[in-house]
Amino acid sequence: MAAPAAPLLTVEHLTMRFGGLVAIDDLSFSARRGDITAVIGPNGAGKTTVFNCVTGFYKPTSGCMVLSPGERSDPAIAQLTASGRGWRAARAGELFLLERMRDFQIARRAKVARTFQNIRLFPGMTVLENLIVAQHNALMRASGWTILGLFGAPGYRKAERVAVERAKYWLDRVALIDRADDPAGDLPYGAQRRLEIARAMCTEPQLLCLDEPAAGLNPRESADLKALLTSIKTEHATSILLIEHDMSVVMEISDHVVVLDYGQKISDGTPDAVRNDPKVVAAYLGVEDEEVEQVEAEIAR
């Protein structure tokens, strides 16, 4: 393996409280460029909450999340933080403070795309339309914010053709090209999962956040998913942040695993290291019976 790449996403001291409930407690981790970083943990550990913070659907109670597409430099981050703004544009070297940006800005400017645990397609629109909507911002510019497009400007038509080509590419990749004109709501479950990934990829993200992409898939579909994610990582300049319960997926394709339990990080490292970490074993399987007895005895006293 090559030398560790620079971190693309750095999460520092992230805390999220809902009323009295602490869903994430002082969490820090980073995801390197070109890596598949998996976030795992038992149910209710706060994985989806982390995703919702990173993608801007929740405003974290405290902490910061930096996305640095270029070289990460601390002075630049400090400068941006002090400036009070949420991001720095491309010419000055792109830098994004995700906790200051709104959800759609994170998707549009920081190029972070996501999928959802309970699939969120546009069921009444066709498969192709789903992928065209994903390219909204590029097409909006090409249509001259609707004015030029209304009168059928050639620039817009060309942009739409390009968008359709991109959609066709991804439909090919997820084997849905034959169903392009069917409503997304009519697809079987596994196909909907694939379509959601294709739709996210149509936004040309640099970070793709997948919330349990293998949930509900059969073993064959699961294997296809692994191949798809690996190829996204190698062929496109897209890093992946992954929540997954299916350990075969996590262990086989991820480069780096972060383990959460009760909102705290309990382990962080390569799949092998995490697998053998006693804290992880304890979190997943519970502690040994003897220890429980020991604790009970202590309480009794």
Partner: peptide, 23 residues
């Protein structure tokens, strides 16, 4: 046009729209 498709996408799923960078 993109704006019309965004309207319909909004009707279908607003959260998904935001995740795709639609204001």
């Amino acid at each position: 046009l993109p704006v019309g498709r965004a309207w319909e996408a909004l009707r279908e799923d607003e959260t998904a729209c935001r995740s795709l960078g639609i204001n």
